[in-house]
Design a protein around this nucleic acid. Structure first.
Length: 475
DNA sequence: TGAAATGTTGGGGCG
DNA sequence: ACGCCCCAACATTTC
């Protein structure tokens, strides 16, 4: 074939990229195209911070392409119109793209495939949602059997990571429309853009002698410690492939010196399988974006108090571990996973705010914001999802703080107003006697808020409402 | 990938 | 020595 398009969507990488490799091996000329789709860029789910990360990632990808004889071609507009014009004007015979499972993407690709020679290729996850199903052909709804089956199957077909093509033949006549500018004030220092930075992070996390993956099982929960991989934004944009991460996890398991570190590496592998599980759930049950997966908890009478919701958003609930995690999100675009569970439980269970409000807020703020994983996490916490936490599982923000941030180091890093609060009171600052507040220059009610709600009261309230909702459904 | 309520056990103080 | 009580520590059940 003379000419092909590599249509880039959520695969901003040259390594282990089946769509790119296929295009390069089959066509004499390959044009890497990214289409800035107004529907995605201007939708309510878009976030300035994620756009900034995307734009910087595109710039980095362009540099990587240039070092291989190619360049990135950017166009803005409806993908069908843009691609139709390119195919018509430039005699492109085939468009190769990595399959994207989110509902909008599937609909878009279906529409385009009817009009154009679009070839979708796997790569965004290691097990295709269509192929990993139960023996009776229906999708898994519970994580553990899904994971067992995933592991059994994945080991069978082994790993075949593709390396980046040495040379990508692109006609120099191709010109890009102007690159989008980074969004002012939205740059995330924690996640430098580009495939090089992403691979470096994965490599150091899984390094055979110094990798944190070998202590992941315990360290991942300590909020003040960077014990997690911190690659989620890269996976979100395909700067890393799922298979690269999975391969690194399996190598770490193989090279582990002892059962504990082997177990740690496997715990991280399981997190990657959670990602695939939720991708599959959204693929098979797209309605979860709109409503509860479970019927019996579909009609919870949420309180949806807007002032309380905004206090949660701003990290002003009066519960230090909740507020610290929210400020970490607001300031960096990323939140520790333990924090995600704690703040989600607090919003849904303590404040009785509809989980979709939290889901939307996370999509606004998270660099790794992805509909499948984000929805899965929120429905898990709310107890409304597949394989969800039982509704009566309510996190106690004080105990969570004491367990996973025992010295309050995480809290103090994000809440400067609590920096002089003694360890004894760091998770219950409202219990400080007046003199202690004075000495810590932290007056509860002015420097830092009173708790927005009493947790033990809120716990009883949510248990009552959830159980009534279930009962009403069963009648 | 909770937490609270309730139940059980066993050591030690004490009359 | 013995029974009784207290209570911490742990286990089990319940939400």
């Amino acid at each position: 074939m003379e000419s092909a398009i590599w249509w880039i969507r959520r695969d901003l990488r040259l390594n282990d990229n089946p769509a790119l490799s296929r295009a390069v091996s089959l066509a004499k000329s390959v044009v890497p195209v990214y289409v800035l789709d107004p529907i995605l860029i201007q939708s309510s789910k878009a976030s300035p911070r994620r756009l900034d990360f995307l734009y910087r990632g595109l710039k980095a990808l362009d540099e990587d392409l240039r070092s291989r004889g190619s360049r990135l071609v950017i166009r803005q507009g409806d993908p069908l119109e843009i691609l139709s014009r390119l195919v018509r004007e430039c005699e492109v015979e085939q468009i190769f793209a990595e399959e994207d499972f989110s509902p909008y993407a599937r609909q878009r690709d279906h529409r385009i495939a009817e009009a154009l020679p679009l070839k979708l290729v796997g790569g965004s996850c290691a097990s295709h949602p269509e192929s990993l199903v139960k023996d009776d052909g229906t999708p898994y709804k519970v994580f553990t059997p899904y994971m067992r089956s995933w592991k059994a199957r994945y080991e069978n077909h082994g790993d075949l990571l593709l390396s980046a093509p040495d040379f990508i033949p692109t006609d120099p006549e191709w010109r890009s429309e102007s690159f989008p500018d980074p969004v002012p004030g939205e740059s995330a220092d924690l996640f430098p853009p580009g495939e090089g930075a992403a691979m470096e992070r994965l490599k150091s996390f899984t390094d055979p002698s110094t990798g944190k993956i070998f202590g992941y099982a315990d360290e991942r929960n300590i909020m003040a410690v960077d014990g997690t991989a911190q690659v989620s934004p890269y996976l979100r944009f395909g700067t890393l492939s799922a298979r690269q991460c999975i391969h690194a996890a399996q190598e770490a398991m193989r090279l582990s010196p002892d059962p504990a570190s082997r177990n740690s590496a496997e715990v991280w592998l399981n997190e990657l399988i959670w990602r695939e599980f939720y991708l599959a759930i959204l693929y098979h049950f797209p309605f979860v974006l709109r409503r509860s997966f479970r019927d019996d908890l579909r009609d919870i009478p949420w309180r949806n108090d807007s002032a309380e919701f905004h206090a949660w958003c701003a990290g002003q609930t009066g519960y230090p571990v909740v507020d610290a995690a929210m400020r970490q999100l607001n300031e960096t675009g990323w939140m520790h996973n333990r924090g995600r569970m704690i703040v989600a439980s607090f919003l849904v269970k303590d404040l009785l705010v509809d989980w979709r409000w939290g889901e939307n807020f996370f999509m606004q703020k998270l660099l790794d914001g992805d509909p499948a994983a984000n929805n899965g996490g929120w429905q898990w916490t709310a107890g409304t999802g597949t394989d969800a936490a039982p509704y009566f599982r309510v996190f106690n923000p004080i105990l969570q703080g004491k367990k996973f941030d025992p010295q309050g180091k995480f809290v103090k890093r994000w809440l400067p107003e609590l920096s002089s609060v003694p360890e004894k009171f760091i998770h219950t600052p409202w219990e400080m006697p007046e003199e202690v507040q004075k000495r810590a220059s932290c007056t509860i009610g002015s420097d830092y808020p009173q708790p927005i709600v009493d947790h033990s009261f809120a716990r009883k309230r949510v248990l009552d409402i959830f159980s009534r909702t279930k009962d009403a459904y069963e009648q």
